[in-house]
């Protein structure tokens, strides 16, 4: 791995997750330096989403440790934002786009305290950034898939985190939204943030990302896209020859 003296955003040691007896992630060791825009790629069932959930404590691993900036996640929550898959929530929930984005500020508020003008202002700014300000009072079920994804991104933006986790942000979104999202992600990276994105479209990996992790239950490889995004690793991960797909 190509991590030398850079500061590590995330360090994972011997992480193992299993549902019942079935291992989903097996003995993962991973070092993610600060300031990278990283794709997690791997076939269906490779444990990509599970890896993110295990890092965030949403799923309890049976072994291993996760350190965020050298400390356990529990103490670092304020530095981490998470964009789950769109399908994990009920979009018929009676609430507006602005309200969903405001939820991103709840972490900094803690229990009981209510969001006020300051939280509203930062939510509006985030909505503007993702080009959704005009839809702020729209009921969330009235938004298209791409717009819903932008709302989720805006919600992560208001958390003003150092590390962003995104679970398939491009799934089911239109091309315009995809471009808008990747532009924002690159801006965040250039501002020194670390972004970890579960990604499906191998074709766009070199264009979008500068760091990549290959995953298939076990960690296959992790490093800069230009060094390790090659047929060898793709074949190791997907089990078939990917030459044609990537280098047409």
């Amino acid at each position: 791995m190509n991590v030398k003296n850079e500061k590590l955003a995330i360090k994972i040691d011997d992480l193992t997750v299993a549902y019942d007896y079935k291992p989903v992630l097996w003995d993962i060791d991973l070092k993610i330096p600060e300031g990278v825009l990283m794709a997690i790629v791997g076939p269906n069932g490779a444990g990509k989403s599970t890896l993110i959930k295990a890092i965030l404590g949403i799923i309890k691993p049976i072994a291993g440790s996760v350190k965020i900036f050298g400390k356990p996640y529990k103490t670092q929550r304020a530095k981490v934002a998470y964009v789950p898959q769109k399908g994990t929530v009920d979009w018929d929930f009676p609430t507006t786009a602005l309200d969903v984005v405001m939820m991103g500020t709840y972490g900094s508020l803690g229990w009981i305290k209510r969001p006020g003008q300051a939280q509203r202002k930062s939510a509006l700014e985030a909505l503007e950034k993702v080009g959704m300000l005009a839809f702020k009072n729209r009921q969330i079920s009235q938004l298209s898939g791409g717009q819903q994804q932008r709302i989720f991104l805006a919600r992560a933006l208001v958390q003003n985190a150092s590390i962003y986790f995104m679970d398939e942000p491009f799934q089911g979104v239109d091309a315009t939204t995809e471009r808008a999202i990747i532009k924002i992600l690159k801006e965040l990276r250039d501002a020194g943030k670390t972004l970890i994105v579960v990604h499906h479209d191998l074709q766009t990996v070199p264009e979008y990302f500068n760091w990549v992790t290959f995953l298939n239950v076990k960690g296959i490889a992790s490093g800069p896209v230009k060094d390790i995004f090659n047929d060898d690793n793709l074949t190791k991960t997907y089990g078939i020859n990917y030459k044609v797909a990537i280098n047409p």
Binding site: R77, F93, W111
Partner: peptide
């Protein structure tokens, strides 16, 4: 009234509520 925010968030998005420490 006290926990409106928490109830709303955890009903809408359990994952977010967990990751934010609620």
């Amino acid at each position: 009234i006290l926990f409106f925010k928490e109830l709303k968030m955890s009903t809408f998005d359990k994952g977010l509520a967990t990751s934010l420490g609620f």
